[in-house]
Each structure stands twice: as structure tokens, then as C-alpha cells.
């Protein structure tokens, strides 16, 4: 298993000018690593639906590379989105999955069949033309340039170490972040979308 922060550090080297959407407990690391926050966006606010929103964004911005860091708990709530994406095959869409095998934000309870499930195989079966599975950081690092240069949709499953949060919500560290609407407005301003 790989530390999510290390995944983001390696990805940053290959990000280029892409739009990046990150979700999940470990997603806060990206905010400290990203060098282009105006092209970082937050769209999620319904269970499992961020991926559908990023899919829509990729369809609407065909000339922009759109990278989504999904999580396995969210994907399991909306598995049909794999078929929806594979059907339209957005060439500009790179779909990472950070799989920590648990619901880290609710105390680390395992997701169903967490040890056996193979998300890359599911994506392949749904019709993604290119899929990867990584459990080792070095292997991921070697392939990142190829992944980012590939025609989408590309699915990249990465096993990550869980960062479990077990305090009551009111006692957790408050992380300063732009609101969803602020990230949307910043991106639209950057891309001159009215």
C-alpha cells in the first residue's frame, strides 16, 4: 500500500495543465502539493456522485485534460458510472481510484469484500480501454507519464494506506479550504467560461 500523499507528490510532476478533482479523506494532501489551485475543483456533495460530475465536466471541456481522484467507497455507491463513462469514452478523462479498502472517514470500517475486489478489472469490463493496478509507488511513478499521455478514459487503481479519522466530527481538525462554489468560480474565471 502507498501513502496517498506520495501518490499526489508523484502525480504533481506529471500534472501539466490538467484540471484536477480530488475527494476522500486523504484528498486534503493535494491542496498542499498542487501548484495550480485555480485548476483544482471540488464538485462533490452527494454520495458517490462526484465521479458523474467530473465526467460531465470532461464532456463539456473537451480541450482540457480532466483528472479525477476517486475513492473506492464512493465508486461502490455509483458503480454504473463506469459504464456511463465507458459509453462516451471521453478522451480527456483520467480516472484514478485511491483504494484504502475502508471507510476512513467513519472510523475505518472495511468496504464490502475489500480484500478481493478488483476495481481495474471492473473498469475494464465496463469498457474502459486502458486500465492499471498499482500497489507499489515505484511502479506507479514509472507509468505516470504514460498514463497522462494516454487517450482516455484511463482507469488507474492504486492501493493506498488508510488515514482513519475516528474522532467525533465536532472534534476533528478544521482544514481551511475554498468552498465548492469558489473552486467552480475560480476554474470558470481561469478558463473564461461565462
Amino acid at each position: 500500500m502507498i501513502e496517498a500523499k506520495k501518490v499526489f507528490e508523484e502525480f504533481q510532476k506529471h500534472r501539466g495543465d490538467s484540471i484536477v478533482h480530488v475527494q476522500g479523506t486523504s484528498g486534503h494532501h493535494w491542496k498542499e502539493i498542487s501548484t495550480n489551485p485555480n485548476k483544482d475543483i471540488t464538485l462533490g456533495s452527494a454520495m458517490g456522485q462526484s465521479t458523474s460530475a467530473v465526467f460531465g465536466l470532461a464532456l463539456g471541456l473537451e480541450n482540457e485534460k480532466v483528472v479525477h481522484f476517486d475513492t473506492e467507497g464512493a465508486l461502490l455507491m455509483n458503480l454504473g458510472v463506469l459504464a456511463s463513462i465507458a459509453n462516451k469514452k471521453p478522451k480527456n478523462f483520467i480516472h484514478f481510484l485511491l483504494d484504502n479498502e475502508c471507510y476512513a472517514t467513519t472510523g475505518g470500517q472495511p468496504v464490502p469484500n475489500h480484500e478481493e475486489i478488483d476495481y481495474a478489472m471492473m473498469a475494464k469490463g465496463a469498457g474502459y480501454p486502458t486500465t492499471y493496478n498499482f500497489t507499489d509507488l515505484e511502479e506507479l511513478s514509472i507509468h505516470l507519464e504514460e498514463i497522462m499521455d494516454s487517450e482516455g478514459p484511463v482507469f488507474v487503481a492504486v492501493k493506498t494506506k488508510p488515514e482513519i479519522e475516528n474522532l467525533p466530527m465536532g472534534l476533528r481538525e478544521k482544514r481551511k479550504a475554498r468552498t465548492r462554489l469558489e473552486t467552480i468560480n475560480d476554474l470558470r474565471r481561469t478558463l473564461n467560461i461565462s
Partner: peptide, 14 residues
């Protein structure tokens, strides 16, 4: 449920 989310992404894209 996907439809509203996909619509949001397209709306953001103008």
C-alpha cells in the same frame, strides 16, 4: 442519480 451530477459538470463547463 448520475444525471443531476453529470448536468452539474456540464453546467460548470458552460
Amino acid at each position: 442519480g448520475e444525471s443531476m451530477a453529470t448536468a452539474l459538470g456540464l453546467n460548470v463547463a458552460g
